[in-house]
Write a protein that binds this DNA or RNA. Structure first.
Length: 260
DNA sequence: ATGTCGCATTCCATGCGA
């Protein structure tokens, strides 16, 4: 089965691209981030007409996540546990059938954290701590698990065009990358790096300063797999051509294939 | 490292968050 993550930067602005991508790539599950709408504004009918079930955790204006699935979603949980006062919609999980059992899939929009020096960076680190705690609990289920999303983390220097530019950025600070490693060290496998050592693999290109034509990108959209999912890992794909579509998102979809 | 985009409101311009 194919599981894909995509930060669409407004699902309503990107509906044509979304429907074209579903038809082209035929993902079994598509995790969306930055839908930038409340649940009522989500284009549910159009997506259901394309053959997908929908689970949404929306928010007015910013953030917002969703999971689209060919099979009905079960055990849907909205929001990341650990802070009842957190009102930002950045996490949603559910399970879908896989082989004789299920695969659990989460869509994640991890806080950006910039500007560093404001309350935004501690919020990012606290959110990562909550994700680590929650992922640890999910791993105890010992089932195939895919944590997919926009992590707003550049894991290593080779994951950006020019590391010097990002040295003091919340996406690349040593503390950010250490937290990301802490998550991986629970026993998760980052699917793209498990399947390729290629250089200049990016998933995001800024709208500004000609970043796309200069291939001045960063790799921040990741799929993290439990051991039970990693055992079925068949391959990964960064759908780079989508960035060249007219009026694109600044992120492109990233897919993992799990062998049936 | 700033050549852009999308959202909301104060609503035909500006501030905010990427």
């Amino acid at each position: 089965m194919r599981i894909t993550t995509w930060n669409v930067n407004s699902v309503r602005q990107r509906l044509d691209h979304l429907l074209a991508f579903l038809k082209e790539a035929e993902p079994d599950v598509l995790c969306l981030q930055e839908i930038k709408t409340q649940d009522e504004g989500f284009p549910r009918a159009e997506i259901e007409a394309a053959g997908y079930n929908v689970a949404v955790h929306g928010q007015k204006g910013f953030n917002g996540v969703a999971i689209l699935s060919r099979s009905p979603l079960e055990d849907v949980r909205r929001g990341l546990p650990g802070d009842p006062s957190d009102e930002q919609s950045r996490y949603l999980e559910g399970v879908v059938p896989f082989r004789s059992g299920v695969v659990r899939v989460a869509t994640i929009y991890l806080p950006n954290g910039n500007p560093v020096g404001t309350e935004k960076y501690p919020y990012k680190l606290a959110w990562m701590n909550r994700l680590i705690a929650h992922a640890g609990g999910l791993l105890q289920l010992e089932e195939p698990l895919v944590l997919a999303g926009d992590y707003n983390v550049i894991p290593e220097p080779r994951d950006c065009h020019d590391p010097a530019v990002w040295a003091n950025d919340a996406l690349f600070l040593p503390q950010t990358r250490a937290k990301f490693r802490e998550l991986l060290n629970l026993g998760l496998t980052e699917a793209v790096r498990a399947t390729t050592d290629a250089e200049k693999l990016y998933t995001f290109w800024d709208y500004q300063a000609g970043a796309w034509p200069k291939n001045n990108g960063i790799r921040i959209d990741h799929l993290l797999l439990s051991s039970q999912a990693t055992d079925r890992l068949g391959g990964t794909l960064i759908h780079k051509h989508v960035r060249a579509w007219e009026k694109p998102s600044d992120h492109v979809p990233v897919s993992v294939e799990l062998k049936d």
